[in-house]
Design a binder for these strands. Sequence first.
DNA 1: TGACTTACTACTAATTTGATAGTAACAGAA
DNA 2: TTCTGTTACTATCAAATTAGTAGTAAGTCA
Lengths: 143, 143
Amino acid sequence: MNNLSNQPCMIARSLALVGDAWSMLIMRDAHAGLTRFDEFRKSLGIAPTMLTARLAALTEDGLLVKRRYSERPPRDEYVLTAAGQDFLPVLFAIGAWGRKHRSSDGVTRFFDAETGSEIDPITIDRATGAPIGTRPIRIVAPE
Amino acid sequence: MNNLSNQPCMIARSLALVGDAWSMLIMRDAHAGLTRFDEFRKSLGIAPTMLTARLAALTEDGLLVKRRYSERPPRDEYVLTAAGQDFLPVLFAIGAWGRKHRSSDGVTRFFDAETGSEIDPITIDRATGAPIGTRPIRIVAPE
DNA sequence: TGACTTACTACTAATTTGATAGTAACAGAA
DNA sequence: TTCTGTTACTATCAAATTAGTAGTAAGTCA
């Protein structure tokens, strides 16, 4: 795609980084606990060239960090940064949408890793607590 | 990409439909009120071939409907379905992420179209009200 | 020494995307 | 009636991206 990162809209700017399915799925797997090249490759069935490129891009953009976990032999893994962890609501919103509009047989479910309770994500307005999507909105870009 | 729509994970299945930047941006513009081919084309700077393909895919997948607004000459526009409207939280989550981690100069802002009050989207667990992203999670796919 | 692991790169084919131009079906003006 | 303009596209082809397979580097383990 073209020059998304130069646009004023935050959505467009963000999509420049994660606006493709592979990146989103890598983020999903990273949140599920995967860290290593081969774990991602096997989980996603992605060509290694693609995976190398995506991991490098996500690292470059600060969603992942490359961490050396073995000196001999040299081995690196990819772990979520704080910005990467903050990406989870996006995945949840997508999952919640799919659950509502695309579920037929089984659905992917989310659980709190510690308490074990199931999570049912919903996006609301922080101030009023009103769910997003129930009222018409106006999007305003600067400049 | 490959066979995302056959995967068990709702996130992957959803990304088969909207897992590219153009589709996301079309959804954004649709929520901002655009309906016509040329409105989308000018807003996005997208090649008409691409736009035709994306609009057809989003229509096929039930996020938009094609509505004839003029018989002579024949003219169609694209409007959000209920499923399409429900996609708004995804865009908000992406925008909120970008606002937090990518904002430098101006940021795109969201307003209630009727009351005019600004919206600050946040994704929470419906049951507990706890914000998503503050605790480790476990993702469980069926089968 | 040989098999195995892990994180990749090289290479080539297939597919998608992008850009430009053009078309169909009209409306309204001259 | 011809001319210009509008809108929603399609055709065509070059350029870029993606996918798939194979191979490599730097080790470990038996």
